[in-house]
Nucleic acid binder design. Structure first.
Lengths: 199, 199
DNA sequence: TAAATAATCTAACACCGTTAAGCAAATTTA
DNA sequence: TAAATTTGCTTAACGGTGTTAGATTATTTA
């Protein structure tokens, strides 16, 4: 009767296969090309069985979003641990965020793409809070001397995030055009904003 | 034989009706809900005749994008004319940009939405250059004392645009949450960046 | 081996963008 | 005026989408 667990494991496998297949399709042909039937083709099933693993297409998108945040969280945590000074940490973290966006373009598009539907349940995802909190803490550290209010930190965080996200958006629209300049802008912006935090 | 022109005028009318109908649908139910058949319903025709006015759905999207830029251009030009000092002009222009994004949410989403397809021909639209150039000129004015290089202006512009666009993106995702704080951030960012231009 | 259950597929529904063929009315030509 | 042609528009269809219900096949249980 240990076969129950084996079957359970097999079910989990196909769940993972569905997500992997989806990501493969997106990496090849973009989010627009993702369809239930194509996923089914790739895992050598027919479309309806996917609905035994996910309630609908948005369910798949949500799970991939979660995975994206987990990945981002890991990378940011890693680079943070490589520094001790708060401002150095913060610069490294934002740089990691920047790198993530281009290394895992598909994830970033899904996670932050303005009109990519699936924006309702997002608020209740702890994986998002995890990343948010790390930045939050770091900013607090940088401002340690001033005993900053929650609200002020939040504002600084949003401003910070805005610059980076805006730069990335530009870079994605004019994709790859004048890479050197964008790097220059990024550095400028990071320096400027860290200085701004200390004001 | 003056009926030729009357008929021509009627054709132009339905062209406009198509665009208006599209915008109505989007305003009611979002870009996702826009379909050729729904447009046809609204103008009381069947779907295929739309293809006598636009080559395809993207054609409609492109035209609406163009109209959006024309509208944005007008509003920015207006507020610019209300000031004489370059830094005041710049702040007013960016504020107008900000206001445009929320007053004409659908246009803004279409014009700057990261993954809203239709991003190929965009480069060759003079209406885009028009807006770009206005900002470009204003930044140049602010930096007048230093005889800035083209490249530097471009970088400042991108950085500037990034903040605003990023703030807007945030605001759209967490739509309307904590409006007061976002206004605060906007003001902070604008002041900061104008100071940054002068450094 | 027979019944019950699980796993999977086929077929369908209602949409989507787009194209081709056809029809009927209006217009032009002879 | 009658025939030919053009115009305006529709119907029907193709191949695609997400999703659901029902039938079918395979597996497990009694």
């Amino acid at each position: 009767m240990g076969s129950k667990e084996r079957i359970q494991r097999l079910k989990e496998d196909t769940r993972i296969n569905i997500l992997d297949a989806a990501l493969d399709i997106v990496k090849e042909d973009g989010w627009q090309a993702l369809s239930m039937r194509k996923i089914a083709d790739k895992i050598e099933y027919t479309a309806p069985i996917i609905y035994e693993y996910f309630s609908n297409k948005e369910g798949i998108l949500m799970e991939l979003t979660r995975q994206g945040y987990i990945l981002l969280g890991k990378e940011i945590k890693k680079v943070k641990s490589e520094y001790t000074k708060a401002d150095e940490q913060l610069e490294a973290m934002w740089t990691a965020y920047w790198n993530f966006a281009f290394k895992h373009k598909e994830f970033y598009q899904l996670m932050f793409g303005v009109d990519m539907n699936c924006c309702e349940q997002k608020k209740t995802m702890p994986e998002i809070d995890y990343v948010d909190n790390m930045f939050f803490d770091s900013i607090k550290d940088v401002m340690a001397s001033e005993e900053p209010e929650e609200d002020l930190i939040c504002r600084k965080y949003y401003t910070f995030w805005s610059i980076i996200h805006g730069l990335i958006s530009i870079n994605m629209v004019n994709k790859g055009r004048n890479e050197a300049m964008n790097q220059h802008i990024l550095k400028d912006a990071l320096k400027g904003i860290i200085k701004y935090i200390n004001e």
